[in-house]
């Protein structure tokens, strides 16, 4: 009975997933076709696998350099923003009083700012710090994401049984030790989830590197994708091929990370 239900569930979910995946099918399949094939049937299967789109893109654009740049910016900024966000969330959890509430309101305000409007002030600030056209400058800007991390993490922390923190407090451990060795392991599912979300954002963000990066050797991957965009028309085969190249590492990352999202609370850590 239980097994049957699991099989039915599998069939239903795989079918829905198949429908949801149609646009991806379209993207991937068209990177493997020649131009005439695409125009003949945009949705059809290719007559043979044609990897010339990929080889051409790798031959003409500095994909590897951009990949390393993006990886560097991504790893550093996500580590930092998770740290800042989770520290803030923990601080808010243990803190009381007006000032704490003020900081909470502050984070909410930050959340509402439409990013487009602060571009010019940010550019002036960054150029004053000689951080325009540096990868570190991008990292600084991406720290804005720590507010988002804070929101997701504090929401999660509030759902945790409070005894988990209390036991360590009674032992007389300092707040920083509790944060480091109790809180961080406990909130791992949300850390990984937020990390995945933010990795997607940083990896795909176009506006920030477009405005703040000038040198071709400091470009991020997404800027390479947009090199296929022209004034009147877009080179769609190149655009789709580049998109697949940009997305592939994210797909691998998500598959690797999702085990940690749903591994649940490890029993050992509950004991405190």
């Amino acid at each position: 009975m239980k097994q049957l239900r699991s099989i039915v569930l599998s069939i239903v979910m795989l079918t829905i997933a198949g429908i949801v995946a149609i646009p991806f099918y379209y993207i991937v399949v068209n990177t493997l076709k020649t131009q005439p094939e695409i125009s003949a049937s945009p949705l059809g299967l290719p007559s043979g696998l044609d990897f010339s789109n990929y080889s051409e893109v790798f031959a003409t654009l500095p994909i590897w350099q951009s990949f390393l740049n993006t990886l560097y910016v991504g790893v550093v900024s996500i580590t930092l923003m998770l740290l800042i966000g989770s520290m803030a969330a923990y601080g808010m959890l243990i803190g009381q009083g007006l000032l704490t509430r003020l900081i909470g309101v502050m984070c909410l305000i930050a959340f509402l700012v439409p990013g487009q409007t602060t571009l010019i002030p940010l550019y002036r600030m960054l150029s004053g710090m000689y951080l325009v056209d540096t990868l570190e400058g991008l990292v600084v800007l991406y720290m804005a994401g720590s507010i988002f991390c804070y929101f997701l993490i504090i929401g999660y922390m509030r759902t945790l049984p409070i005894e988990l923190f209390e036991s360590a407090r009674i032992d007389g451990a300092g707040a920083f030790r509790i944060y480091w060795s109790i809180v961080l392991p406990l909130i791992r599912p949300i850390l990984v989830t937020v990390g995945v979300f933010q990795a997607m954002w940083v990896w795909n963000d176009f506006i920030t590197p477009n405005v703040f990066i000038n040198s071709p050797d400091k470009q991020t991957l997404v800027l390479q994708v947009y090199s296929a965009v022209g004034q009147f028309s877009t080179d769609w085969p190149a655009f789709m091929t580049l998109s697949v190249i940009v997305l592939a590492p994210l797909v691998v990352f998500f598959i690797a990370a999702q085990r940690h999202i749903v591994s649940g609370l490890v029993t050992g850590s509950v004991k405190g």
């Binding site: 571009l119 176009f206 506006i207 477009n210 405005v211 000038n214 040198s215 071709p216 470009q219 800027l223 947009y226 090199s227 965009v229 022209g230 004034q231």
Partner: peptide, 11 residues
């Protein structure tokens, strides 16, 4: 330096 036209460039 490069920026894709039109909006990306103008911005």
């Amino acid at each position: 330096q490069y920026a894709p036209p039109v909006a990306g460039y103008i911005q």
